[in-house]
Amino acid sequence: MTADRRQARDAFLAQAGWDDASATPVAGDASTRLYERLTKGGQSAILMDAPPGPDGPPVKDGKSYSAIVHLAENMRPFAAIARHLTQHEFSAPEIFAQDLTQGFLLLEDLGDGVFAARIDAGDSEEALYGGATDVLAALHALPAPTSLGCGDDGPPHIVPPYDDTALMTEAELLPSWYARLAFGEDLDATAQADFHAAWTQVLPKARTAADVLLLRDYHSPNLLVLDDQSGLQRIGIIDFQDAVIGPAAYDVASLLQDARRTVPADIEARLLARYEAARTAQNAGFDADAFRAAYAIMGAQRNTKIIGIFARLLLRDGKPGYLKHIPRLADYLARDLAHPALAPVAAWFEAHLPLEKICVPIDPDSVTT
């Protein structure tokens, strides 16, 4: 943290009345955001520090990757989505203070009960993922919001669409970055064109129902157990600043094909059926068969994207720790590609990048960055 940023942080906390709090770092995510837990007088809060700015240089048509795929470039989306979720009685953190211009939020501390820690401590895996599944079913029953206030006098946040351009750009991280990791060079132009053509055939099949609000990174690191709550409110939700409007199946796949920990196939199947039953109870016109196809497509897109992201984190950012998750993602991807709706994409992988190769863990020490 630069001296200027430290000064701005201290001024924000002083204005919020937390300048005399003690601070300890909190483990973050793969982004550049920083988090601190503040404590004073038996109370605690979380400081979220995210200076505004694009995620990287322009990559296409003068736009950064974050702009193309609709990643948050400032704190306004987080503030807007947090308020939307709490207004509908979901357990997102309350905002105590904010400076959206400089990129500071002082948030309710939802604790350390992340899913992985609670499961390791003996909580039922299926019960926790089931509760999170129920939250999604309830959230997806709501009309998709378009314009949301951010709690200040600034403009509202317009929730962007998860359009096919964004989905394709994300998926193309795999032939761009993982190919370099696997082969030491880019795939040839024909293979890249075939990849694009295969996904062009498949992606429209995921849009079989009205789009909903997607939290987009809805999986175990961003889900917490709140022991002082019950029902849907027992599941705490964080890290939703990249929320978009898109196919409901995306967040269900994000949860049940968790990138950070393996969800057994039998639990995935039961909870997928549980979600479908809840949506059918809400809407008799819910098409479970169409949803299953959309689930496979969105799962394949997400797993393809994340494999590319984890390769990029090593090659671009020097962060090798995410490579250990790639074999799990390849296993999920194999489940998805078995669906007939994904036949063109499955054929591409078979021809250009067999999943057996992705399943082999890569030693980061053997990779030249």
Rank of each mutant, 00 (worst) to 15 (best):
I245S: 12
I245N: 13
V202Q: 04
G41D: 14
Y35I: 00
I306P: 01
L353T: 12
Q43G: 03
V225N: 05
G318W: 10
G236Q: 01
L333N: 07
M75I: 07
D120A: 15
P93I: 06
Q229L: 12
R270E: 11
Y178G: 10
Y35G: 03
K324H: 00
I362P: 01
A27R: 12
Q7T: 15
A253Y: 00
P161F: 12
D331W: 15
L203Q: 04
G130A: 10
T86H: 05
H196G: 13
V69S: 06
N303R: 03
G149S: 09
A30P: 12
F12P: 12
G17I: 07
L174A: 07
Q87C: 06
P327I: 02
A206N: 01
P145H: 04
A166T: 05
H352C: 14
T304D: 02
A249D: 08
L323K: 11
L342F: 09
D20S: 14
A132C: 05
G122L: 08
D152K: 10
S254F: 00
L272Q: 07
L71M: 14
R37P: 06
A82F: 02
D163C: 01
A27V: 14
L232D: 00
I326K: 06
D49W: 11
F310C: 02
R37I: 12
I362Y: 09
V114N: 15
K60Y: 14
H140Y: 00
P221Y: 11
G42V: 08
G131Q: 09
L136Y: 01
G17E: 07
D120W: 01
H88T: 05
D55V: 13
L213Y: 04
N283D: 15
R260L: 06
F104P: 11
Q192K: 14
P340D: 12
Y332F: 10
V252E: 04
R5N: 09
Q201D: 12
A79K: 00
A347V: 11
V159P: 00
S254E: 01
M1W: 10
L355Q: 05
A193L: 13
R261T: 13
P52M: 11
A97P: 09
I237F: 09
M298C: 06
N303Y: 08
Y332R: 01
D163E: 01
L187A: 11
L315G: 10
R118N: 03
H196M: 10
D266H: 11
E126W: 09
D227A: 14
L139G: 04
P160G: 08
L142W: 08
G111W: 02
G149I: 07
E185A: 15
P54Y: 00
M168P: 12
F104G: 00
P58G: 02
A171W: 08
T39G: 11
D61W: 06
K319S: 08
P344A: 09
D289P: 08
M168F: 07
A82E: 06
L313A: 05
K357D: 14
L128R: 02
Q201W: 07
Y218I: 08
R76E: 11
S91A: 13
A138Y: 02
D55L: 15
G17L: 09
I267N: 08
S147Y: 04
G321C: 06
A206H: 10
Y218Q: 02
E185F: 13
T200D: 14
S124G: 10
D152V: 07
